[in-house]
Structure formats: structure tokens, C-alpha cells
């Protein structure tokens, strides 16, 4: 069966979705990613959707699921490169993906993830800031 490749880059995982997903492919991506985070101890997931022209509520849910599951496994998810038409459509559909971080492109996504990771580590190691949520 066709699969979406997951690339490992240090503490980050990079997924580039090149095809329009049909349901089974999206579901297997969700499962594969969660496995991979667990196996590699990745702290961040970058999903590049710049080649995706349609995101419906099913795909949207998968993206939301991936973000939520990664969070439980202590990894942050950033979706990058969403096309304007897709963003407008998702909002109209009623799915603003509020739990998911976004960035304009892969480069900015990496930056965002790195800054989140350093912030988190500083908070863990640092002694001046004891306030946890």
C-alpha cells in the first residue's frame, strides 16, 4: 500500500503531503506518525501541506488528531504552507483548527518549533521561573 514518507531531522519529524489524501492514507499517516514519535522521541512534527488543494472535515480531523496525540507524547505539531483557498474554505466549513500551530513555510515552521522547544527546555532547566500551568 501507498504510504506517506516521514523524514527524521534531529529531534524533528518532517512529513510532506504530496498527494490529495484519501481516507485510508490519512488514517495510516496518523498511526505511523504516532508510532514514529514514540520510537524516535521526536519533540516536534512539521507537516507540509503546501501541495494539498483540498482539506475537508475528515482530513482536518486527522490533522487535529495528530496535533493532540503528539502533544500527549510531548511533541509540538506545526502545519506549514496552507494554501489561501484552503484556509478560507476551512474557516467557512467551521474548522479553524484552533489547537494546531501554523507557519507560512517549512523554514518558518522550523523556527517556530525550535523556539518552542528552547522555551520549554529553559522552563524545565531554569530556576527563576517556577510557575507551571
Amino acid at each position: 500500500m501507498e504510504k506517506i514518507p516521514i523524514l527524521r531531522m534531529g529531534r524533528l519529524l518532517l512529513v510532506t503531503i504530496q498527494v490529495d489524501l484519501y481516507d485510508r492514507l490519512a488514517e495510516s499517516l496518523e498511526a505511523d506518525l504516532v508510532q514514529m514519535i514514540n520510537k524516535t522521541g521526536a519533540r516536534g512534527v512539521l507537516i507540509d501541506i503546501s501541495a494539498v488543494s483540498i482539506i475537508d472535515s475528515f482530513m482536518g480531523r486527522i490533522i487535529g488528531n495528530i496535533a493532540a496525540m503528539s502533544k500527549i507524547l510531548d511533541a509540538e505539531t506545526v502545519v506549514v504552507g496552507m494554501q489561501p483557498a484552503v484556509a478560507i474554505t476551512l474557516v467557512e466549513l467551521g474548522l479553524p483548527l484552533s489547537g494546531v500551530f501554523s507557519a507560512l513555510n517549512v523554514e518558518k515552521g522550523m523556527e517556530l518549533l525550535r523556539s518552542k522547544l528552547t522555551n520549554m527546555e529553559r522552563n524545565v532547566d531554569g530556576s527563576d521561573d517556577g510557575s507551571a500551568e
Partner: peptide, 17 residues
Amino acid sequence: GLVNQTKIITAASELAR
């Protein structure tokens, strides 16, 4: 236009599903 295309295809995707 591209935005309306995206809207109708997304709608169609929902209904087909």
C-alpha cells in the same frame, strides 16, 4: 475562481464521504 473551486470540491468531498 480558485477559492470557489476549492469550496465546491470540499463540499463534494463531504457529501461523497
